[in-house]
Design a protein around this nucleic acid. Sequence first.
DNA 1: TTGCGCTTGAATGGATACATTACCGTTTGA
DNA 2: TCAAACGGTAATGTATCCATTCAAGCGCAA
Lengths: 251, 251
Amino acid sequence: MERRGTASPQIDVERLTDLTHEFQAAGLSVKESALETIRWAILRGVLAPSTRLRQEDLAAILGTSRIPIREALRILEYEGLVESEAHRGSVVRALEASEIEEIYELRTVLECHAVRVLIPLLTDVDLADIERAYVDMADATDPDRHLILREQFYLRLYSVASRPRLVGQIARLRLEVARALRWRLIQHSPTHHQIFYEAIRDGDAERATAELASHYRKVTALLRRFLRDGEPQRDPPIGGRSSAIPHPEVT
Amino acid sequence: MERRGTASPQIDVERLTDLTHEFQAAGLSVKESALETIRWAILRGVLAPSTRLRQEDLAAILGTSRIPIREALRILEYEGLVESEAHRGSVVRALEASEIEEIYELRTVLECHAVRVLIPLLTDVDLADIERAYVDMADATDPDRHLILREQFYLRLYSVASRPRLVGQIARLRLEVARALRWRLIQHSPTHHQIFYEAIRDGDAERATAELASHYRKVTALLRRFLRDGEPQRDPPIGGRSSAIPHPEVT
DNA sequence: TTGCGCTTGAATGGATACATTACCGTTTGA
DNA sequence: TCAAACGGTAATGTATCCATTCAAGCGCAA
């Protein structure tokens, strides 16, 4: 996989140490902070796809030994965020176009199911919370913050269904595509969230699921064009500050 | 969680070492063989729910050090088969009634989707393979072997959809309930697999999904009675040979 | 000049040893 | 007599060290 000719992206040490300090401050154990640091570094684009993850380098950067790193990499391998081969090391996994399409299909199935389940369960308290989360998201301008608030909005909504596994699955799939899309310039779709939110607010499961499905179909079609036809709009792999990256609004 | 009074089930050392030897012979690395051993020990009932999994004990039984055990336990924790707490150890996770219900609901959603996707993709080669897998499963009498062949049948079928994530999710959910049901006596349902298989063979997605959904609804209703109303039919937690355990045919 | 094979280096896989933490029993005080 | 604090014990968390393995690079021979 990794050859001399195909230089793997360099690691932005500074941003990675910043991330680590955040998680260490949260009172997590060394292993947990290592896991969360690497996971979020991948999801937020600090560690670009195809980056080699050498245990010793990461241990040095995170200020720990290799043991917690190894366990973190094992879990991330199982999650699908990194790829490991025995005695050959780990790399940040790049999603293939077909995988992104499958994820959107799965998201359509699972999120529509969640909507149908949760609509009859919505309480006034839920609706108030959700409206607040929606407004926060809509107001955010910083891309990283927008991403976080968007996920908070959707997860607050879906958690109404009281289906922890369903919500967990949805959350994971959403993050995975969000990661992949950080590096592509995709068309902005400002009204999707609004249409969806208003359908939820009106208790109209039919309209909400239709909007989800139709939007994800559009996204998939766009992705197919961008990803299959030579990936014309790829950002530089790493190095640019995240604030320079346009919103991955389609998700 | 674990107190002096609530004695956790003892580990059947002999059966566990037998399992280990199987996996070690397969040429896996130590970590992989530890992972597979513990995973299948849980799924096949050798390690009963609430069994304490002490790293040192497992290391001694599997003939290794604690490191591979630790990594295996981390992955199993992520899979949801074991529960770990810092400095307090790991135990085999027991599924709550509500979780089993959610899993069946998720299975209904995912498996029905898989059926709808795969029916138009079926080739003659697929159908021949699937028929063979079905006959093998129907002929098996040993419970462990039946369980394995049943999963092979369903996974061979679903893999036609060319959706690796979807199939992986389904496989995991199926195994999880199979594990939970090993310890409960549930009504035998011999015709379900047959009806489902014949619908697939006829290319009738509607009939196949209807059968799946209706069957899983029945199972959920049964489970609700058994699991919520005092769990009247629990088998002895461990010690009995697996051949004495009736088929968990409902899955 | 090219291809095969050995050597060598660097990275991961695994084992042993030490640090830390949580539980449980005991003791001591009111 | 009861409650709270303290210490012992046993488990996991972490670090250091050794073994294994893969592959790149060099050399030799055809």
